[in-house]
């Protein structure tokens, strides 16, 4: 199941629609890497609301994905981790250190606006 990636202004939004296999996850990583370069995106939102489990592999892949995108100049934020999923993740000892997180798409956009504005013009 491929993850659709939408372009919204200078941001890309990858909105996961169904449970992902490992291969889908790796595909998403490669697609995002391509599209960030192609569209010179300044921000990326990865919406994981529908994921019912984020296990060690998914965590590792997401973390790698975000760091890679950051290095390519796109601020990246993961949105929509559900309470039960977050709870299971921390029980497994999984964290997303150094990765931006937000409650949902709306918050994710606010997060990116803040991050990218800070670079554009210094705070008063």
């Amino acid at each position: 199941m491929q993850v659709p990636i939408l372009k919204q202004g200078s941001y890309l939004i990858a909105s996961i629609q169904a449970v992902l296999s490992d291969a889908d996850m790796l595909q998403l990583r490669d697609d995002l890497a391509d599209k960030v370069g192609q569209f010179r995106a300044r921000g990326v939102i990865i919406d994981v609301t529908v994921l019912d489990v984020i296990d060690s592999f998914a965590t590792r892949t997401l973390r790698g994905m975000v760091h890679m995108l950051n290095l390519r100049g796109a601020e990246t934020v993961i949105v929509g981790i559900q309470p039960e999923v977050a709870f299971a993740m921390v029980q497994l000892g999984l964290t997303l250190e150094g990765v931006g997180t937000a409650l949902d798409l709306e918050e994710g956009l606010a997060f990116l606006n803040q991050k990218t504005k800070v670079h554009a013009k210094p705070a008063k």
Binding site: D52, V53, I54, D55, S56, F57, P83, E84, V85, F87, A88, M89, Q91, L92
Partner: peptide
Amino acid sequence: SSAEVTLVAAAISEIAR
């Protein structure tokens, strides 16, 4: 409970992996 179901699913994911 739904929270426990999620924990079980996560554990299954790890042992299957």
